[in-house]
């Protein structure tokens, strides 16, 4: 399985554009389609992937414990109850931030690749060490942005760095799109954003209040029965 495993970095540069939400929902969707999927929270400082998946009370060990041989990988993985194909692995404790190096992340990713079809890495915001650590764990990348100046600008910087690495393909997701505002030309269009960043467009996700509601409940949209604009895209 290791050879064919897809390790995908989900990054954005700017915070709050929807990396973690996309990681959680993509993870559920992939698991639901039958692929074994691991979501790795590489955001040590401010980790939230556990909350979005409703797994915050079940974390005992982290990837750091696995590398330190305090526990086995299986013990650190938090399996999702409703979606058994999905497992969460928090990278580490916020207090041990300095401990992690790119080689460590690479090692974790290799361990996960032995067991899963997909490894999705939720990258921290910024372009500093946390980003570089997460980058080392992946072969491909999805850049998430909003149709807003600051988000597109930061995405451009991230893409600049990704272009100097071996990561390929690099694809774009435009999140929190408001079609009405685009129609009245009060929001950068999909073509504007894609043209400026010049990446292949993987998908568009509409602004959707249901996302907030599902976050409150810790039940990703892709897990619920009801249909909603943002869910249908994923």
């Amino acid at each position: 399985m290791a050879e064919s495993t897809r390790t995908i970095l989900i990054c954005s540069g700017k915070g709050g554009v929807g990396k973690t939400t996309l990681t959680a929902n993509l993870g559920i969707a992939l698991a639901n389609s039958g692929a074994t999927t691991a979501v790795l929270d590489a955001d040590f400082g401010l980790r939230n992937l556990d909350l979005l998946l409703g797994l915050e009370n079940r974390i005992i060990y982290t990837a750091q414990d696995v590398l330190d041989e305090n526990c086995r990988l299986e013990q650190a993985l938090v399996r999702h109850k409703k979606e058994p194909n999905l497992a969460l692995l928090p990278a580490g404790d916020p207090r041990m931030l300095d401990w992690m190096k790119p080689e460590d992340m690479k090692r974790i990713s290799e361990l996960l690749s032995e067991k899963f079809d997909y490894v999705l890495v939720d990258c921290p915001a910024g372009v500093e060490d946390g980003f570089k650590n997460a980058l080392a764990a992946c072969k491909e990348a999805i850049v998430v942005t909003n149709p807003e100046l600051s988000a597109v600008r930061d995405a451009d910087r991230v893409i600049g760095i990704l272009n100097t690495s071996d990561i390929e393909p690099i694809q774009l997701v435009i999140n929190r799109v408001r079609p009405n505002m685009m129609a009245s030309q009060e929001m950068l269009s999909i073509e504007d954003v894609q043209g400026i960043l010049s990446l292949p467009l993987l998908g568009i996700v509409l602004e959707d209040e249901q996302v907030i509601i599902s976050t409150n409940r810790g039940e990703p949209l892709t897990l619920t029965e009801s249909s909603s604009p943002a869910k249908n895209v994923i």
Binding site: E148, L149, V152, R153, D156, R157, G160, M182, S184, Q185, E186, M187, L188, S189, D192, I196
Partner: peptide, 19 residues
């Protein structure tokens, strides 16, 4: 002018510098 045009122009300028 629609604000999207202003946004596009400002973005292109700032990226030309950033890049």
């Amino acid at each position: 002018t629609a604000s999207a045009n202003t946004a596009r122009e400002r973005l292109q300028l700032v990226l030309a510098h950033d890049r």
